[in-house]
Simulated assay, not measured.
Amino acid sequence: MHDHSASELPSLRRQKILLILERDGKVMASELSQHFAVSEDTIRRDLAELDSAGLVQRVHGGALPRPKDTGKDYFTRLDETDEVKVRLAQLAAQKVEDGQIVLFDSGSTTLQVARALRPDISITAVTAAPMTAIALAAYAGVKVILAGGQLNPKTLSAGGHEALRLIAGIKADLAFTGVCAIHPDVGITSLHFDEVPVKQALLASAARVIAVTTADKLGAVEPFVVAPCERLHTLITERHLASGSVEDYRRLGIEVEQLPD
């Protein structure tokens, strides 16, 4: 019987390297070689793969984190009008019914869902993202509950015990989650370690979970696992995928809706 150690699984080892990089801010090939009990050449190949995927920046003897955004701050990205995200949000917003309690995750796509609701909708909305709360407050028929706590500057969403306690105490009808990445085998994963507990609480508190995502997030993997794909009920995405097939998700029992051409 094989011992599936990190040294035998390059993909797992590379995920762990990303975890260490997130924690320490820098990794050295010599230290990683000792940590994983593999040669420095193997580690250098790992770092080369991660660099080519745009996940790290190689430096002499190791690697540094590589910013994954375009250099624009979060406010700028939120205010940019992405036609595909708007269309996805419009499709998702049709799922909301009067009288429901609806959870809204952080992120620009979920913010677009909040902006795309029917003008006369009457719901109770819960979110830990202040920008989304402000968008929801524009509706006369929407009661907004904002989960508080320390604001994460990377996601502009609150985290910590206060936000978790509030979300865990709600039994919602519906939750809209944005995903950093979703893979049929690995599941839903995030780039940010500290947003995982809030996302998990959100998924656990809703009777129905809808993920709204652009095609580039499908088949992708980030360092921090949030939940298995099966936690989703509905996946709303584009018609044409960059990786894999929607059948990969339908086989898991997920309802998949795609934008019309």
Results as ranks from 00 to 15, higher is better:
41 D>K: 13
74 Y>P: 00
226 V>Y: 02
260 P>L: 10
61 G>W: 02
203 L>T: 06
260 P>K: 10
228 P>Q: 08
220 A>Y: 04
82 D>A: 11
244 G>R: 00
139 Y>S: 05
105 D>C: 03
241 L>I: 04
184 P>R: 07
239 R>T: 15
238 E>I: 02
139 Y>H: 02
37 A>I: 11
120 D>F: 10
192 H>D: 13
239 R>Y: 13
230 E>M: 10
191 L>S: 14
43 I>N: 05
247 E>D: 14
215 A>Y: 06
94 Q>A: 11
197 P>Y: 02
199 K>C: 02
22 E>I: 13
169 G>Y: 00
14 R>A: 05
58 R>W: 06
203 L>E: 05
112 Q>A: 14
222 E>Q: 11
100 Q>C: 03
107 G>L: 05
80 E>V: 11
253 G>V: 05
134 I>K: 10
247 E>G: 04
122 S>E: 15
49 E>R: 13
183 H>F: 02
242 A>E: 15
125 A>H: 04
135 A>S: 09
176 F>G: 07
99 G>F: 07
84 V>W: 03
31 E>V: 12
114 A>F: 05
99 G>P: 04
40 E>G: 11
37 A>K: 14
137 A>R: 07
38 V>A: 08
97 E>V: 11
98 D>S: 12
139 Y>D: 00
239 R>C: 14
209 V>T: 09
237 T>N: 01
199 K>Y: 01
139 Y>T: 01
16 K>V: 15
51 D>F: 07
71 G>W: 01
211 A>C: 01
57 Q>E: 14
51 D>T: 04
146 L>A: 08
21 L>Y: 00
166 L>D: 00
78 L>M: 14
157 S>W: 03
210 I>N: 04
97 E>M: 14
208 R>N: 10
89 A>S: 10
81 T>Y: 10
232 L>N: 06
180 C>H: 12
101 I>T: 13
